[in-house]
Structure formats: structure tokens, C-alpha cells
Amino acid sequence: MSGTLLRRDAATAWRPFVIVGAVLAMYAGVVTSMFDPELGESLQMMMEAMPQMFAAFGMANAGSTLAAFLANYLYGFLYLALPLVLILLLNSRFLVRWIDRGSMAWLLAAPLPRRRLAATQAAALSAAVTLLCLWIYGLGLAMAEGMFPGELEMERFFWMNLGLWALLQLLAAICFLAGCAVPDSRLATGTGGGLCVLFLLLDMLAGMDEAWEALRFFTPLTLYDPMALSEGTAHLWMVAALAGAALVFYGLGTVIFCRRDLSL
């Protein structure tokens, strides 16, 4: 890894990171404050009125505990979509833009093997995802303890967040791989982002209607089930599978980057 390049990455990443972090904090605050064990019933009624709409956004079951409530309203969709925006932006700034603008020539002309160059940028993206997840986790703990002391089941909440981390790492790794492998750098962001959005849509469709249930098998989001994690009924191997796949894709991206032609 190159410290100089990591510092450059940090300099281009902090602004969008802070903005997305702030938006996430706002949602975390608003959604957590809406939790009311007594009011669960009225939400249940709304959900019965339009079940498909709620199901599409991963809000099939309002849940009675705070962890389940958060899993339902934040971890099913918002905490996937907003971080995905940041992932796409950072992957573009760390990798795709360098190639697209031709500035990659300056990086390749440095005495850094390509392997180290790609590994540095993968590490930067992965670190940004980890930091964001730590922020989300910390926010959740702070909001929950601030508004409903003692309500949050710590161990289950931890697993919900670890699962989210593994899934977001996988989405980031898919974008990174696309950035390394797609020859046309303008298509690269679209390919990575398009795949991630497609996975998200498939997950939504599969949740909406039983007829589309089979779509579950075409999206890695199936391996992340925040409701099950919040209820303590999840298979933890699924979290490990997400993290493992992320590692493979980061590695594959690096290998392809080392071999490809870069006409800069």
C-alpha cells in the first residue's frame, strides 16, 4: 500500500462521506424516535392496508422489539441505498476517474507495482465502508440508549450491523471489480452501480409477491436478512459468505487490474 495515495484518497473522500453520514444520522434519529412499543399496533394496521408496499422496502414485519423495528425501517432499505450512493462515488474517485481522465498515468509511472496500487485503492474503499458501518452502528447505539434506555438487545443489534457491513463490503467489491475489469472507464461505474441496483430491485420484488419469490436466488442480498438477525434466528454463515465473497471480488479486481492494458 502507498501512504501517499491513501492520504490523497482520504482528501477526496471526506466531503461526500460527511454528507452521507449526516443524512444517515438524520434518518436514524427520525426513525428511532418513531419507535413506540405501544404504537406498534397502528403501524401494523397500516401495513395490513398496503402489505406489498411495505414488503417491497423490506418492512414486512414491524416487529415488537427495538432491534426488529430498526431492522425493518432502516436496515432493509435505507441503510443499503444511501451507503451504495457513497460507494459508487468513492469507487469512481479512487479508481475509475483516474483511468477515465488519464491521470492514472502518473500513478502507473510511480515506482509502485500495480498490485500495490490496486490493493491500496481496494483498501481505501473497504476502509470507507467499515468507517461508515461503525458510524451507523454507533448512531444506532447512541440513539437507542438516548431515547429508549435498555430497550436495545445489544448482541442481536451487533449482528445486524455486522451483516450490513459484510453486505456493503460485497457491493463495494462488485463496484471495484467492475472498475478494474470493464475496459471502457465510463461504463465501469454504470456496470458496478447497475448490478448493485439490480440486486436491490430483485430483492424488493422477491419480497413483494410470492410469485416473484424465486428472484431471491439471483441476488446476494438474500444472504442478508436483518429481520432474522434482529430476532436471533439468522444463519450466521450467510454473513461469513458475504464477507468471503467480498474478499474474493476485491482480490479478483486487483488481479485483473495487474494484467490489463491501460492506454493512458
Partner: peptide
């Protein structure tokens, strides 16, 4: 190395 297309990070 000096590239023909400079492409310095703006």
C-alpha cells in the same frame, strides 16, 4: 516520465 496527455489531477 512525462505523458503526452498531461491529465494532471485538477
Amino acid at each position: 516520465y512525462l505523458p503526452g496527455e498531461l491529465a494532471l489531477p485538477e
